[in-house]
C-alpha cells in the first residue's frame, strides 16, 4: 500500500492530467474500431474540425452569446427581485409569514416542469425563457438575503435603534452591508441555477438561437462532434462566469473589511 502511495505521490505533479490524457487515448482508440463506434466515439480530429467549422461560420459565438444574454438578463431580474423579496421578508415579520410558506413549497416544483404551462401562457419566445431563468435565480437569492439579514449580530440592530434609524435606514445602512457576504453567496448559487435553466429551457423551448438549440440540431443530424463542442463550451463558459463572479465577490468583500 505504501509503495503504491509512494509511486502515486511521485506522479502527483502531473497526475491531474493523467486521467484526461488516458480518456483521450482510449477515446481515439475506440474511434478506430469501426463505423459503429465512430457514431459515439467521434475521432478527436473530427471534434477539432467541428469546432473550427462552428467558429468560422460564427454559429458557436452567436448561439453562445444568445445563451449568455438570457442567463445574464434572468440573473439580474431574478436576483434583484430576490434581493427585494428576501429583504422584505427579513424586515417585515408579516411579509415573512405570508410569503415564507409559499416560497418554501414553490421552490420544490421542478422549474423546467413549469415550461408547458409558461409556454401556453406566455408563448415560446425569449420572454418565457427569461421568466424561467429569473425564477431560477430568484429562489437562492431570496433565501440567502433573508438568512444573511436574519443572522446579523443583534448589537448592530441595537446600535441602529439607538441612532433612531427607521426601517429603510436600518435596511440600507445596517442590514444590507452586513448581509453582503451571504447575498453574494446567494448570487453565486443563482448564477449556477440560471445557467442550468437557460440551457434546459433552450432544450425544451427549442426556438431562437442558443447553445441548447445548437445541440438539438446536432443531435438530430447525429453530429456527436458538435454536441461535444457545445457541451464543452457550456462547461467552460459556466466556469468562466463562476470565476468572474467569485472575483467580484472577493473584491466587494475586501472593500468592506478595509473600511
Amino acid at each position: 500500500m505504501n509503495i503504491i502511495n509512494q509511486f502515486l505521490l511521485n506522479v502527483k505533479h502531473f497526475s491531474g492530467l493523467l486521467l484526461p490524457v488516458t480518456v483521450a487515448v482510449v477515446w481515439e482508440f475506440m474511434s478506430r474500431q469501426g463505423d459503429a463506434y465512430t457514431y459515439i466515439f467521434v475521432p478527436l480530429s473530427q471534434i477539432g474540425s467541428g469546432l473550427v467549422e462552428l467558429i468560422q461560420s460564427g454559429e458557436l459565438l452567436i448561439n453562445l452569446g444568445a445563451t449568455l444574454q438570457t442567463t445574464v438578463i434572468g440573473l439580474l431580474i431574478g436576483g434583484f427581485a430576490g434581493l427585494f423579496v428576501g429583504g422584505l421578508m427579513a424586515v417585515s415579520p408579516l411579509a415573512n409569514k405570508l410569503i415564507g410558506p409559499l416560497y418554501h413549497t414553490m421552490r420544490q416544483v421542478p422549474l423546467l416542469g413549469l415550461i408547458p404551462l409558461i409556454a401556453l401562457w406566455f408563448g415560446n419566445d425569449l420572454f418565457s425563457k427569461i421568466l424561467i431563468v429569473s425564477l431560477a435565480a430568484f429562489y437562492p437569492v431570496v433565501l440567502n438575503t433573508f438568512e444573511g439579514m436574519r443572522g446579523i449580530e443583534h448589537k448592530y440592530v441595537e446600535v441602529a435603534s439607538v441612532l433612531k434609524f427607521n426601517r429603510l435606514q436600518l435596511l440600507i445602512h445596517v442590514l444590507l452591508p452586513a448581509a453582503t457576504p451571504s447575498i453574494m453567496t446567494g448570487f453565486m448559487h443563482a448564477l449556477a441555477f440560471a445557467w442550468v435553466s437557460t440551457v434546459g429551457s433552450e432544450l425544451l423551448f427549442s426556438t431562437g438561437p442558443g447553445v441548447g438549440g445548437l445541440m438539438l440540431m446536432a443531435q438530430e443530424s447525429s453530429r456527436m462532434d458538435i454536441v461535444i463542442v457545445a457541451v464543452v463550451s457550456i462547461g467552460l463558459t459556466g466556469l468562466l462566469m463562476n470565476a468572474s463572479l467569485s472575483h467580484l465577490r472577493q473584491y466587494l468583500l475586501r472593500w468592506r473589511s478595509v473600511r
Partner: peptide, 25 residues
Amino acid sequence: KPIDAFFASTFNALRQVPTIAFIPM
C-alpha cells in the same frame, strides 16, 4: 491524496457542465 490528485481536475471540469446539457449526448 493521490486519488484526489488523479481525479480532481477531471471531476471539477465535469462538475461545471449542467446535467441537462448532457441530455442530447
